[in-house]
Amino acid sequence: MFAYIVRRLLYAIPILLGTTFLLFLLFNVVPGDPALQLAGKHATREVIETIRAELGLNKPWYGQYFDMLKQLITFDFGRSYWTKQKITDMILAGAGTSFSLGFPAFVISTSISLLVGLVIALYRGSKLDKGVVAFSVAAQSVSLLVYILAGQYFLAYKMGLFPISGYDPDFIGRWQYLVLPIIIFVFLSVAPELRFYRTIFLDELYQDYVRTARSKGLGTKAVLLRHVLKNAMIPILTNLVITIPFLILGSVLIESFFQIPGLGDLIVKAIANNDRPVLISMTVLGTFAYIIFNLISDILYALVDPRVQLK
């Protein structure tokens, strides 16, 4: 397995190089000079050229690309063009915040989806199953914006159950602001996940090994938890592990409406301000996280299913 992990990590190098090159190409093909925006409304040619020199934008393309690679390899992402903050500090602050929002929502929605998915799969065709599926389809058809607007208006403003918006970096203090966004996040995630897990469980419930287990006299609970759930683990793990990087990257709309200073908010502002170093760092980190979590899901396959061998 060790050799497999090393090999997969080595594969990551060309993927990361390819990503950085594509990104670099994109920023150089898409018009828009960051120096012009930074020079302000009274820009002069001299000021623009000075800014270009400071940012290294006056170097040939390969010089700029090399600078970018150097920064990424040394994990010194430099500073934001716009705020002059260290990008590492910006990402660390935003990632913790986004994770505080995303992780509880992920755990709660996954637990609910797995549990309800298992139950309705078991009662396939019943009123409960039809009702839950219909509800999921309906819930999925409504846009996130509607959940946010309605949640904020009715639950926070009209009923006063939660603060309307805001955030507190203090670990205890933050939860008062996160409960409503988490509820919305859960509501939004449960519907598609529930249908996905239901399908997986249905596939498993009609397998021969389930019939065998039942014929041996095993109870429903034992069949579901000991056999069905375990055999359904591969698609479940794939879905769960691949979701984790997105928890850190945050939800743009939720963070924006609830004034949560996470990475979603950071990305939106970086796009608006043409803050290339921030965008490049975020994209490369996202790619890296995706590769790593893909690898983790492969390793987990081997752990949950003895038939899978990593070579």
Binding site: P104, Y177, L178
Partner: peptide
């Protein structure tokens, strides 16, 4: 685990309401 999560959700709800 589900029971723990339900407890956590309840706790968060209480934190939120008291903070309001």
């Amino acid at each position: 685990t589900t029971r723990y999560l339900m407890g956590l959700a309840l706790f968060l709800g209480l934190v939120s309401m008291s903070a309001c």
